[in-house]
Simulated assay, not measured.
Amino acid sequence: MTDTTASATPDDRPIPGGAFPLGPRPVARIGFGAMQLGELPGRALPSDEEATAVLRRAVELGVDHIDTSHFYGDDTANRRIRTALGSADDIAIATKVGAVRASDPDAPVPLVVAQKPAELRAQVEQNLRTLGRDHLDLVNLRRTDAGHGIIATGDQIVPLDDQLGEMIAMRDEGLIRSIGLSNVDAAQLRQALPAGIGEIQNAYSLVARGDEDLLALALEHGIAWVPFFPLGSAFPNAPKVAEQPAVQRVAAAVGATPAQVGLAWLLAHAPNVLLIPGTGSVDHLEQNVAAGAVELTPEQVAELDAIADGTPA
């Protein structure tokens, strides 16, 4: 089992969950996802002051990897990161391209597909502007072939190789340091491997484990695995990690919350897992980061491994 305790650097800065490379640079395995600083459908958005407090506390706790996007609240999350943290290179910034905000504010889905190479470049440039940076540490190419969210149709069905060509060009120009892929399968990762891939970002959790083959392939090639929906899908009626009886039993036994156990299981499951739980609350942030110190016994891991949603485990 992977050690999920927080280690520290020589200057005593914590490294929550230990470290693993994100592209060319090592980062703490527990990072921060900024979506909730940009939009919270059905809930009140954190204030600017609350967002700044969360981001600065995250850095104090050892978080050095922030995942964001220009379409989180129409640049709101990016601008808040810039205000709170500036442009110092000690924090790795990962973002994603492949969609933009819908022009109609009343559209049922707030995003539209934008997969063409020129559109990908425009999105990278927008992220750079709103974050106030001259480069991005990693940019995920969010494919829209299938799965969660919006699906490409018509001329937005773009060959992966065409997209990778543009991503490689931007990396060669110094705009981005590493290329990631999101919402892909194992065949697409194999196709993209010659381009040099630093991260895979797919939906994955204790209760949604259909991508074990892709996870294994990423681990084989030293590629970071950064799951979204790490505690189960946000969609109605989808399974939630914290609601599983086995998770609740283990949480009670180790003195942690069910959410912390779900995150700790991910860290223990594979050494290339990086987590980016998001929140607009300092208290919740501290709980998420503390998951890196939750130690699970082999018996507890086996009990949790037995949980699945019917997909291969």
Rank of each mutant, 00 (worst) to 15 (best):
V273Q: 08
D137F: 12
R13C: 03
G262E: 09
E299V: 04
V100R: 14
S7I: 05
L111G: 00
L214P: 03
M170R: 02
A8H: 15
A313N: 13
M1H: 03
E299R: 14
P227D: 02
D3S: 07
D64M: 11
G262Y: 03
L285H: 05
A44M: 04
I151Y: 01
E125V: 03
P230T: 14
V247Y: 11
L285K: 09
R133Y: 08
E295W: 04
L275H: 10
A246G: 00
L206S: 09
S87Q: 06
A99E: 04
R171Q: 12
S205I: 06
R79P: 01
D211S: 07
L274M: 12
M167N: 08
D213N: 10
V109S: 07
L193H: 09
A270W: 10
D283H: 14
I223L: 08
M1Y: 02
G196C: 08
G33V: 03
D185L: 01
D89V: 12
E49V: 10
G33R: 07
V109Q: 14
L217N: 02
L37S: 06
D90P: 14
S7V: 06
V97K: 14
D75F: 02
V97P: 09
A107T: 01
L219Q: 15
G196E: 11
V207P: 06
Q287L: 13
Q123M: 01
P117D: 10
N288T: 11
A259S: 14
E49I: 02
A187F: 00
T52L: 07
G149D: 02
A28Y: 12
Q201F: 12
V139G: 14
G154H: 06
K116R: 15
D67P: 02
A302L: 12
G278P: 01
R29G: 12
A234K: 05
R57Q: 04
A234E: 10
S87L: 01
L55W: 00
P230M: 14
L131E: 03
G174D: 08
V207Y: 07
I66M: 13
E243T: 10
D64A: 08
H221Y: 15
G222T: 05
S205D: 11
Q126G: 00
V124S: 08
E50R: 11
D172P: 04
I91M: 12
D12H: 15
T52V: 13
F32S: 09
N272F: 08
T279M: 11
E173M: 09
V241D: 05
D3W: 13
G42T: 00
H221V: 09
N78I: 02
I197A: 11
L267F: 15
I197Q: 13
R79S: 00
R101Y: 01
A8C: 06
A94D: 10
R101A: 00
G180K: 06
I157K: 10
L274W: 00
A34H: 04
P41A: 12
A19P: 06
V27E: 09
L45I: 09
A107Y: 03
R82F: 00
E50I: 02
R101H: 06
I276C: 12
